[in-house]
Amino acid sequence: MTSSPHIHDDGAAVAARAERRWATLSIVIIVVIAGVAAFAGIHQATMPQVRVETADPTTLHIGGEFVETNLGSAAEPDGTVTVRAIGQRYSFTPQCILVPTDTPITLRATSSDVVHGLLIQGTNVNTMLVPGYVSVLTARFEKPGEHLMPCQEFCSIGHEGMWARVKVIDKAAFMNMTSNRRRLDCVE
């Protein structure tokens, strides 16, 4: 506001000066906020998914990554765990996801019909499932325990019944289980 128009007296000059100070402060506040977001993005690796991927929702069940026997948790050679899941009206498959503690987890999920949302309570795992696209996010669970995993997006009548669960178990126990099953879940 350097060119505040037609300032005629001292009062106006004082007012303009106060305004300029406040405007500068406001801009500083905003730069700090944006900076913090960028910093968090870099140092805590909490950026949105890196790549956009597509998947045909109508044929997920016939073959490929999201065929039902490939859903669940898979131990990868590099020591990480990949969890694959789908959302459909009105359940996630698997409806109970099993993950180990202290392990980098990559969640890959998509929807076979409408828009769903996947939220693991008590964690930062929270993403949309949009039919046609694959949602990918990374997570790490520190403590064993159980979490609820509701669908957080309206997916038509029946949405209120779409609650799955996540069970976090000790890493060693999880790895033991992978020796006789290639895809794990905690569905009973």
Binding site: V52, E53, H61, V67
Partner: peptide, 22 residues
């Protein structure tokens, strides 16, 4: 946001017949 092809490991195939109806 340019869509990319995934390079996924071979999926675990079902040992039973799944429905193939779209």
């Amino acid at each position: 946001g340019v869509p990319q092809v995934r390079s996924s490991a071979a999926p675990v195939q079902p040992d039973f017949k799944v429905s193939t109806v779209v």
